[in-house]
């Protein structure tokens, strides 16, 4: 019995206390699924890339849908629109709207290319992110993006968001 208990503890020490089901994930399992990149850079892997390196990746993997210079095409524009948000026709792009550069890393790594997500290496993600930021004139062509520098990139619309303050309308029911 003691041996068996010991084996169980080793295999799943963290089974749920009340209902006694489930097991503890292994470190590798958690690592494999932990793809969330936070605005402070938590979750970013080792690796690096520059816009100069990302240009080629972008041309092969991104331009078909987003346009040769991020102007948009079959899919949304990645570039432009800065200063348009209060106008009659806001153009929401990485440059004009996205508040965090880390979000771009997370999203490209998580989802792109649309029909083949997950094929880019970490270095390729860094470089293509750098390229899109460069197209928006946010980072220089040879500025290295890595886990230290990317969270420090100041996005133009970083302070453009407010928390939900609704209800903002609502006449009281007339009776």
């Amino acid at each position: 019995m003691f041996v068996l208990a010991g084996l169980l503890v080793g295999a799943g020490a963290a089974q749920s206390p009340t209902y006694k089901v489930g097991r503890a994930p292994t470190a590798d399992e958690v690592k494999a699924w932990s793809i969330t990149i936070f605005p402070d850079g938590t979750g970013l892997p080792e690796g690096s890339g520059t816009a100069a390196e990302g240009k080629e990746v972008y041309a092969r993997r991104c331009s078909e849908c987003h346009g040769t210079t991020g102007q948009g095409g079959e899919s949304s524009a990645l570039v432009g629109g800065q200063g348009s948000l209060a106008s009659a026709k806001p153009l929401k792009t990485v440059g004009s709207y996205w508040p965090y550069a880390t979000t771009l890393w997370d999203y490209v790594n998580r989802t792109m290319p649309f029909h083949n997500p997950g094929i880019l290496t970490d270095d390729q993600v860094y470089s293509v992110v750098a390229y899109v930021l460069h197209l928006n004139e946010i980072v220089g062509e040879n500025e290295e993006m890595n886990r230290q520098t990317l969270p420090k990139v100041k996005m133009p619309n970083r302070d453009g968001f407010i928390n939900d303050d609704r209800p903002d309308v609502g006449p009281k029911s007339e009776k």
Binding site: T36, I37, F38, L85, P99, Y100, T102, T103, F161, I162
Partner: peptide, 30 residues
Amino acid sequence: MLADQPAMGREETSKYTDVLADGKARQFSL
């Protein structure tokens, strides 16, 4: 995943946010 901050993922920053008249956008308008 439990965290001390939101992920600020693509959906909750660039998509499901609501641009107001002054150009600011309402976020986590859930």
